[in-house]
């Protein structure tokens, strides 16, 4: 996990923090942008506390931690990623009741071709993230999941604005 709690100095340089596969990144630096590039079957989940201006994102790969023999990074499995994300943003001063949660991803990639229909982990990921949010007492404000296309998800820490970008489509606010 990378934590960016130090406010930027005089220069207002925007830093894009890449949230890679299975990663959990939190920040309270208003210049930061948290970005999950090319979500396919994975889920990008963002949380934002508009009062404390604390933000976090996880890039969930699989629904449950007991699917695989060994653990991975903190954001890899839905069931363990959400509690870990909650703990990480609380550490930066976020209040769970104020958290605005949004998610995107969970697509069925490789929709074309005679072998289309394989790799349907996306919908299971979406279900597992919803269940884990509910388990943590968090409410989902907005979601854009499913379909058969990839998405890039970004969260601006300064404003809490979340955007979703797809290939050939406009950038939409979530």
């Amino acid at each position: 996990m990378s934590t960016r709690a130090t406010p930027a100095a005089t220069s207002a340089r925007v830093t894009s923090l890449k949230v890679g596969l299975g990663q959990l990144v939190v920040s309270s630096n208003p210049e930061d942008i948290l970005a999950a590039l090319g979500l396919g079957s994975c889920i990008g989940l963002t949380v934002f506390d508009p009062v404390a201006k604390v933000a976090g994102m996880v890039h969930v790969m699989l629904p449950e931690s007991d699917i695989a023999s060994r653990p991975g990074p903190e954001g890899k499995y839905a069931d363990t990623a959400i509690p870990a994300l909650l703990a990480a943003v609380r550490k930066l001063g976020a209040e769970p009741t104020r958290l605005v949660c949004k998610m995107a991803g969970g697509a069925q990639m490789f929709g074309n071709g005679s072998g289309g229909g394989m790799l349907n982990i996306g919908s299971r990921n979406a279900i597992a993230v919803r269940a884990a949010l509910q388990g943590a007492g968090l409410r989902l404000r907005a979601a854009q999941t499913g379909g058969n296309f990839g998405r890039t998800l970004e969260l601006r820490v300064g404003s809490g604005v979340v955007t979703v970008r797809t290939v050939g489509g406009p950038t939409e606010e979530l």
Binding site: M61, G115, G116, L119, N148, F149, T152
Partner: peptide, 17 residues
């Protein structure tokens, strides 16, 4: 075979899952 046209990471990560 299954075919996809999209961002590299979106297609690859589905296989990696």
């Amino acid at each position: 075979p299954a075919l996809g046209v999209d961002m590299t990471a979106a297609l690859l990560s589905a296989v990696l899952a």
